[in-house]
Design a binder for these strands. Structure first.
Lengths: 171, 171
DNA sequence: GTAGTGTTGTTGCGTCCTCAAGTATACCGA
DNA sequence: TCGGTATACTTGAGGACGCAACAACACTAC
């Protein structure tokens, strides 16, 4: 009776389970590594990385949330932590008073840089051990079709228009 | 300076980020769906599914934890909840008094069955919309090489030896 | 038997994140 | 100009999960 479970969605279930388990395992491993390297989490790293890559080192908090796959409220708390540690700061938007920018600080760039050295090395090693370049490209392509996998590309163009109106905050 | 980030691990980072974002999006969507369908989470579903597939409907808690990618302590609390709801029960192992089995109940099978109808349908649809069968098989193959993605296969053979010594618990 | 070591499971405590609700601002049609 | 609606962000409450520490049991070697 339950064997009907598998006939209903055989490969799709396997794909989802493997994706979830791989995610959990990698997340745990990288979190420990990053915690040791710079006292940050994987999500912190992603946030800092995206800010560092953005023009002016700043992004709207909501775009940042979409980009890293957490909710707006999660982003508020995450940035509270990073701001407390001096890795990011706030910047008001003169054009739309609803929005606040998150801007990476010099300290933030330093921490990101040092975390990146170890993190990216082991990330690269993990994939290089298991995939050829072609296979990795295939994997990236396939993953890109899943819901929520993209998000990132649309934000930077929006940012380019409005980042001019950013005022570095004093607080 | 930060552009070195990408040259250090270009595709690997993209793969990891896409995997994480896809996981977050799917997890959220399926959790809401399952919550509505049977008041359970994605992890609950996986636990029930694995128990239902196991011989005798039971597995060692530790194997279950490995299989679904959470820690032993996470599994203790998860099973506390499922036991409270009457979906699983405990069973002692007469051969090794350290281990406790988790066994799915009839109620558990009913809840699993009804949750599976909606969940597997949308899971199947999600993948069918985006991938051909070949592509899905490719994806499953590639994901299977990632750390933590497997785990499942080794446990059932162990189970077959010791499940004979299971005593349904009264509590 | 008995000490040393490994494994299973539980518990205390903390973290990260979500949902729901609330506030402040922007935009739009009458 | 004035509601009505949408968006950005914050806050309160709670859930899911990890780590570290611990107790109970098993296995090994002496």
């Amino acid at each position: 009776m339950i064997s009907q479970l598998n006939s209903a969605a055989p490969e799709a279930l396997t794909a989802f389970v493997r994706l979830a388990n791989a995610h959990a395992a990698m997340q745990r491993a990288f979190n420990q590594e990053l915690q040791a390297a710079g006292g940050i989490t994987v999500t912190d790293f992603e946030v800092l990385r995206r800010l560092a890559e953005a023009e002016g080192g700043g992004m709207r908090r909501i775009d940042l949330a979409h980009a890293v796959g957490i909710t707006a409220s999660g982003m508020t708390r995450l940035l509270d932590g990073l701001e407390c540690s001096g890795l990011v700061m706030k910047a008001d938007c003169t054009e739309d008073h609803r929005v606040t920018y998150a801007v990476i600080t010099d300290t933030g760039r330093r921490v990101l840089g040092s975390a990146a050295r170890t993190h990216l090395t082991s990330l690269r090693a993990l994939f290089a051990e298991r995939f050829t370049e072609d296979e990795l490209a295939q994997l990236v392509g396939l993953l890109g079709r899943l819901p929520g996998a993209e998000e990132a590309s649309a934000c930077s163009s929006i940012l380019q228009q409005s980042v001019a109106g950013v005022t570095p905050a004093t607080s």
